[in-house]
């Protein structure tokens, strides 16, 4: 049972007061995952710290070489924001696949990462966009790769009281494709998801990053496939070859949402489709 909920409006206020709060405490921003955990009793806490109106967390800023995205920006915001549309197209494209409109109006990217689900749509887009995570603990920041934060299913390296402040997404010349396999036309948790960001010139891959969801313990980068494709011309042969490689790179499981062979095949099919549409 929740004993206490405390709301803060700035980071300075948060760091000043956080240590006075009950020990079993947790941040809440959108709450779309936390509400579910609370309902099913999988969360043992005494205090929720409401950071949904902390102003530093709700910024989207374009800087010289990167875009800063606050961890508390609502998902639906990405569809309306011009910086995101131009500089982080994968994230822009992910929005329509992300949960449902009502959830998108309240859920956040920070929560998507903190929840550490292998099927996280936001993380899938961030990973292929090569985003880094800014963590903040009592005012002290560290910047980590997503893979070093999201270390297992429902497992992160985030320390107690440490806050995901936002993401740094490099600005690089690329196009992107976001594909997600769901069980009906809309509203579904992914059976498998693939995001490709690539810089392709005259049919050749100059640079590429590929991420996949729901096909391993974490949302993962498909580095072998990336390495294979870099510098290659996109043609039937390379597409077919990369289809084979990516299927060896993922390690899906059977569960109530799908079966491993299907997930593997879909990742391959999605890669083919992504490459031919980026060509």
């Amino acid at each position: 049972m929740i004993m206490k909920a405390e709301k803060f409006y700035s980071l300075s206020d948060l760091w000043k007061n956080i240590k006075k709060l009950p020990q079993k405490r947790k941040y809440i921003c959108g709450g779309t995952d936390i509400a579910v955990s609370l309902k099913y009793g999988s969360l043992d806490i005494d205090c929720l710290i409401d950071i949904s109106d902390v102003k530093e967390l709700s910024l989207i800023k374009k800087e010289k070489n990167h875009v800063f995205i606050g961890a508390g920006v609502k998902i639906s915001e990405f569809e309306k924001n011009e910086i995101i549309k131009k500089c982080v197209p994968a994230l822009y494209k992910s929005v329509r696949y992300y949960a449902s409109p009502t959830i998108r109006n309240i859920a956040t990217l920070g929560g998507n990462l903190a929840n550490a689900s292998p099927c996280a749509d936001g993380v899938l887009a961030l990973l292929a966009s090569r985003a880094k995570v800014i963590l903040n603990l009592y005012g002290k920041k560290r910047v980590l790769e997503i893979k070093d934060v999201f270390i297992g299913p429902k497992k992160t390296s985030i320390k107690k009281d440490e806050l995901i402040e936002g993401f740094l997404v490099p600005i690089w010349s690329h196009k992107s494709v976001f594909l997600k396999s769901i069980p009906r036309k809309i509203f579904g948790i992914s059976k498998a998801g693939l995001c490709v960001c690539a810089d392709i010139k005259n049919g050749s891959v100059r640079d590429i990053s590929i991420s996949a969801s729901s096909v391993g313990p974490v949302v993962l980068r498909c580095l072998k496939t990336e390495t294979f494709l870099k510098g290659k011309e996109i043609n039937d042969k390379t597409v077919e070859e990369s289809y084979k490689i990516i299927k060896t790179e993922v390690s899906p499981i059977n569960d109530h949402r799908s079966v491993a062979e299907y997930r593997k095949e879909i990742i391959g099919v999605f890669l083919k489709r992504a490459l031919s549409s980026l060509k």
Partner: peptide
């Protein structure tokens, strides 16, 4: 769509998150 999964006597998707029914879009 509708695929209720019961493994060893225990229901795995007892709710609308994972028990898929047609929506108005379908």
């Amino acid at each position: 769509y509708e695929n209720l999964v019961i493994e060893k006597g225990v229901m795995k998707n007892p709710g609308f998150t994972d028990y898929i029914v047609a929506t108005s879009c379908d």
